[in-house]
C-alpha cells in the first residue's frame, strides 16, 4: 500500500461489550486501511462485528455496555480515538458520514426531510438557514428525487423506503465527507431499488471523490461496488484482498464456503438440479470464544491443531492476507 494515499487506518481495534452475560468481543483486533477514493467492503454474517467496527470509527459505540478497549483509528494520520467528544462531533458528518441499514426508522418522523438535511449543513458549514435549505433541495435533486423543492417539505412517512434511503444519502453527502460508511444500505430495499441505490452511490462517490466503507453480507453487492474486500468472522479479519483475488482465488475455507453459497444463474441447466450450498452450524457465541480458530467448529477442512492454536494473518502477497493454518503451513513448506 502506498502510505500517502491512506485516508483511514485502523490498527488493532478492539471493541468489547460488557454485559451481565459476560464480555462479548464484538471487534477483536481489527487492522485495516482505506485509501483515498477507494471502496472497501467488509463482509460477514450477522453478528460478526461489521456494524460495530463502523460505529467504532464513528465514535458511536452503544453506551454504556460497549467500549473501545484498545487500538488506534487514524484519520489523515490523526488518532481520532484520542479526540474529545466535541472534536469528534466536528468530524462526524463533516469528515466521516454514515448511512444506516433501516431507512424506515433512521429519519426523525416529526421533521421534514429538508430540515433534516439542512440541520447537518448548518452544523458544519457557515451558511444562513435559507442557504442551507437551498443546498438541501439541491442535494435531493442530486440523489434524483423528483420535484425536490416540494419533497423537501415532506415528512419521512410520505416517502417510500427507496426514497428515504436516497434522503439518507443526501444527508450523508451534504457536507462532502472524505469517508462514507454505508452499513448495509440496500438490505432493507427491493432488489430493483437496491441496484438504483448502488448506482447512485457509486456515481456520487466519483462526483464527490469520497471513499466508501461498505458493510454488507451480500456478496453480489460487493462484486459490483468494491475494489477490496475484508471478510470478517467473530470479530476478526479472516481474509483480506482485492475483489479479483478473493472471488477468483479464495483461500480461507469460510470465504470459499461463502462464495459457494451464492446461487448461480444458469447453474441448474448446466449441472442439473443441485441443493444450494450452505455453511452448516451457527455463528459462534461471542461470549464464549475460546482459543483456536473461531471458525473451526464449522470448518470442513479443520485439523486438530485448529482447535487450540491461535493463528495470525498470513500474507500471500499482493495485499492478499488470510487467517488460516492451512495457508500458513503451505507457505512455510
Amino acid at each position: 500500500m502506498n502510505h500517502d494515499d491512506v485516508l483511514l487506518n485502523v490498527r488493532g481495534l478492539k471493541t468489547y461489550f460488557y454485559t451481565l452475560d459476560g464480555i462479548a468481543k464484538a471487534v477483536d483486533g481489527m487492522s485495516f486501511y482505506l485509501d483515498k477514493g477507494e471502496t472497501l467492503a467488509i463482509v460477514g454474517e450477522s453478528g460478526c462485528g461489521k456494524s460495530i467496527t463502523a460505529l467504532s470509527i464513528m465514535g458511536l459505540v452503544p453506551q454504556p455496555a460497549g467500549k473501545i478497549v484498545n487500538g488506534k483509528i487514524y484519520l489523515n494520520n490523526d488518532d481520532i480515538l484520542e479526540y474529545p467528544e466535541s472534536k469528534m462531533q466536528d468530524i462526524r458528518g463533516d469528515k466521516i458520514a454514515m448511512i444506516f441499514q433501516e431507512p424506515m426508522t433512521s429519519l426523525n418522523p416529526l421533521m421534514t426531510v429538508g430540515s433534516q438535511i439542512s440541520e447537518m449543513i448548518l452544523r458544519h458549514r457557515r451558511v444562513t438557514k435559507k442557504e442551507s435549505w437551498e443546498r438541501s433541495v439541491s442535494m435531493l435533486e442530486k440523489v434524483q428525487i423528483p420535484s425536490p423543492g416540494r419533497r423537501a417539505k415532506d415528512y419521512p412517512h410520505q416517502l417510500s423506503g427507496g426514497m428515504r434511503q436516497r434522503v439518507m444519502i443526501a444527508i450523508a453527502l451534504s457536507c462532502n465527507p472524505q469517508i462514507l460508511i454505508a452499513d448495509e444500505p440496500t438490505t432493507a430495499l427491493d432488489v430493483t431499488i437496491q441496484a438504483q441505490i448502488l448506482d447512485l452511490m457509486l456515481r456520487l462517490k466519483q462526483d464527490y471523490e469520497t471513499s466508501i466503507l461498505m458493510i454488507t453480507h451480500d456478496l453480489g453487492v460487493v462484486a459490483e461496488v468494491a475494489q477490496r474486500i475484508i471478510v470478517m468472522y467473530a470479530g476478526k479479519i479472516i481474509e483480506e484482498g482485492n475483489v479479483f483475488s478473493i472471488f477468483e482465488n479464495p483461500r480461507h475455507p469460510y470465504t470459499k464456503a461463502l462464495l459457494k453459497s451464492i446461487p448461480k444463474f444458469g447453474n441448474r441447466t448446466e449441472h442439473g438440479r443441485e441443493p444450494l450450498q450452505e455453511i452448516t452450524g451457527i455463528v459462534p457465541n461471542l461470549y464464549k470464544l475460546g482459543s483456536g480458530c473461531s471458525f473451526c467448529p464449522r470448518c470442513k477442512e479443520a485439523m486438530d491443531i485448529c482447535k487450540i492454536k491461535d493463528v495470525g494473518l498470513t500474507d500471500l502477497g499482493n495485499g492478499h492476507r488470510v487467517r488460516c493454518l492451512l495457508c500458513k503451513s503451505k507457505r512455510e513448506e
Binding site: 464513528m58 458511536l60 462526524r92 458528518g93 426508522t105 429519519l107 426523525n108 418522523p109 416529526l110
Partner: peptide, 26 residues
C-alpha cells in the same frame, strides 16, 4: 433507543441539540 437518534448523532449534532430537537418532540 430509536434509530433516528443514532442518525442525529452521526450528523455531529451536540447532545443538547439532539435532546432539544429530536428527543423532546418525539
Amino acid at each position: 433507543e430509536e434509530d433516528f437518534i443514532r442518525t442525529a448523532r452521526s450528523k455531529g449534532l451536540s447532545r443538547f441539540l439532539i435532546n432539544r430537537r429530536h428527543v423532546f418532540q418525539n
